[in-house]
Design a protein around this nucleic acid. Structure first.
Length: 495
RNA sequence: GAGCCAUUAGCUCAGGCGGUAGAGCACCUGACUUUUAAUCAGGGUGUCGAAGGUUCGAAUCCUUCAUGGCUCACCA
């Protein structure tokens, strides 16, 4: 099976295949062996004064992104992880064979250069080559050097090309890595233990979402891809691990949008003997720490909005928020009927059998969420929409739960964890009833989780954050696909 | 799932009223030993997303489909 048969050859590729053949005939390996650069392009630019003064040898490697030939000499730009640097290749200095290699070099090829640093007449720090070595021949032409790769579909499908051509894409993903590193650092410093729990679940719990269903052949059982990390992590709290977190992929079989990808990254953490108040402090501190560490500031820009992540963040109960933005005081609403009447008045669609708490939640989403631009904790969620959160001592219709909102989007969800096994069992039972009524997103019964609670879970605070959405916020990305390297797309045969 | 928009050369894009396709970059040939969106002279780019239809004639008009984007719906 030859390469020629594997690749569809247009004329541009045919030219490169011919060059490849010619290189092989000359004994040059077009897909070379390892190479040890001594400097990155950025290091050379940063240390240029010393390097020019000393005249010492530098060894660099990178992809050729531009070439300007002048007969017996020429310039090119090599790109590595950190940026680009210009190289100068002169017949007198590299010899006829390497110079011929330079003449035939294509944009996209990967070369190694040994030489010394100098400044050109026009003032550009460059590497004057003494050796010019082919490391990898590129067979496909790169996109246009000035406009880069714009086609969004191609950018997502062929992220490798996107990364080669668009430096800001590379920056986004480098920053994503730093954000997650800072998150780990913050939690590790607080004594949290990072753990890994199964992604294949017998019961998909911990969130309201439709799962992906899969099958294990040897066991001949149906399995679900996890939709949350919650229930396993709480089992670990019961086991005595006290402070745990997991950063991992979860999978939800739902629509795709600029804010939803079928697989995405969540962090969940649980702290024994803590409550949701502690989680609020932890949330605002951790996000501020990450921003400071990665961006050098807690005042960020998202779209055309300036966001101040400096703690403490605003706090408001859901009831107060609805009172403020929708003008309805749910403290004065006694019955489900009255609540549904209010919903009708506010033109919020709710199911016929909607309860007071779920109506409150709907009105909140419709009337309040769009206003929550600056970081805000919304506290005390209705019990109906919070099947895993502890009831409030002073009002069993509400829970010790909050969500954090920034730029009108949910960033975090946290609560004082429900640790009463009998209550938990009742809540699951209610969820199962919802499920039987056709709500595919309602929880399933998880008997083992109830059993675990029966052994006793200490009072615990838990927190979940959508990592991709946090990265979007901190990298000023408008689509979740811009912070996920390979977003989910429908496959295509024709490209 | 619905609405709107897009799909033309490897890439970025033009193609008024329907007359069988263009530019720049990239590529090829030649010149040029400090250029930088290098320059100069010459050269070829193609299933116009796919399939039907209307028409003497379709990149262009119509229908269906495919893929993507945005908005909405869905969605802790």
């Amino acid at each position: 099976m030859s390469i020629e048969q594997n690749l569809d050859l247009n004329e541009l590729m045919q030219v490169r295949m011919d060059k490849l053949k010619e290189l092989k005939e000359k004994g040059i390996n077009p897909f070379g062996q390892k190479f040890n650069p001594t400097y990155s392009t950025k290091e050379i630019l940063d240390q240029s004064e010393e390097l020019i003064a000393s005249g010492q040898e530098v060894i660099i490697a990178g992809r050729m992104m531009a070439k300007r030939g002048h007969g017996k000499a020429g310039f090119a730009n090599l790109q590595d992880l950190d940026g680009q640097i210009q190289i100068y290749v002169r017949l007198d200095d590299v010899g006829p064979e390497a110079h011929d290699l330079f003449l035939k070099a294509d944009l996209g090829d990967i070369y190694g250069v040994k030489g010394f640093v100098f400044i050109t007449k026009r003032g550009e720090i460059s590497v004057h080559a003494r050796e010019f070595i082919l490391l990898t021949k590129s067979l496909r032409p790169l996109p246009e050097k000035f406009h880069g790769l714009k086609d969004v579909e191609l950018r997502y499908r062929q992220r490798y090309v996107d990364l080669i051509m668009n430096p800001e894409v590379k920056e986004t993903f480098v920053l994503r890595s730093k954000i997650i590193k800072a998150m780990r650092e913050y939690l590790d410093n607080k004594g949290f233990l990072e753990v890994e729990t199964p992604t294949l679940h017998n019961i998909a719990g911990g969130a309201s979402a439709r799962p992906f269903i899969t099958h294990h052949n040897a066991l001949d059982i149906q399995l679900y891809m996890r939709i949350a990390l919650e229930l396993h992590l709480k089992r670990l709290i019961i086991g005595g691990l006290e402070k745990v977190y997991e950063i991992g992929r979860v999978f939800r079989n739902e629509g795709i949008s600029t804010r939803h990808n079928p697989e995405f990254t969540m962090i969940e953490l649980y702290q024994a003997y803590a409550d949701y108040e502690d989680m609020m402090v932890l949330t605002e501190e951790m996000v501020a720490y990450i921003a400071e560490k990665c961006l050098g500031t807690t005042k960020i820009v998202y779209g055309d909005q300036e966001i101040d992540l400096t703690p403490p963040w605003n706090r408001m109960t859901m009831i107060d928020a609805v009172k403020k933005y929708a003008g309805v005081d749910f403290k004065e609403i006694a019955t489900d009927d009255a609540a549904r009447e209010v919903a009708a008045k506010l033109k919020v669609a709710v199911p016929k059998d909607a309860t007071k708490g779920s109506v409150l939640n709907e009105i909140f989403e419709e009337y309040v969420e769009p206003h929550l631009i600056q970081p805000t904790f919304i506290m005390d969620y209705p019990i109906e929409v919070s099947p895993l959160a502890k009831k409030k001592d002073d009002d069993p219709n509400f829970t010790y739960r909050f969500e954090a909102f920034i730029v009108a989007r949910e960033l975090a969800n946290a609560f004082s964890e429900l640790n009463d096994p009998m209550d938990q069992k009742e809540r699951f039972t209610k969820q199962v009833e919802q499920r039987e009524k056709g709500d595919e997103e309602a929880h399933m019964m998880d008997e083992d989780f109830v059993r675990a609670l029966e052994y006793g879970m200490p009072p615990t605070g838990g927190l979940g954050i959508g990592v991709d959405r946090l990265v979007m916020l901190l990298t000023n990305s408008q689509s979740i696909r811009d912070v996920i390297l390979f977003p989910t797309l429908r496959p295509r045969q024709d490209i």
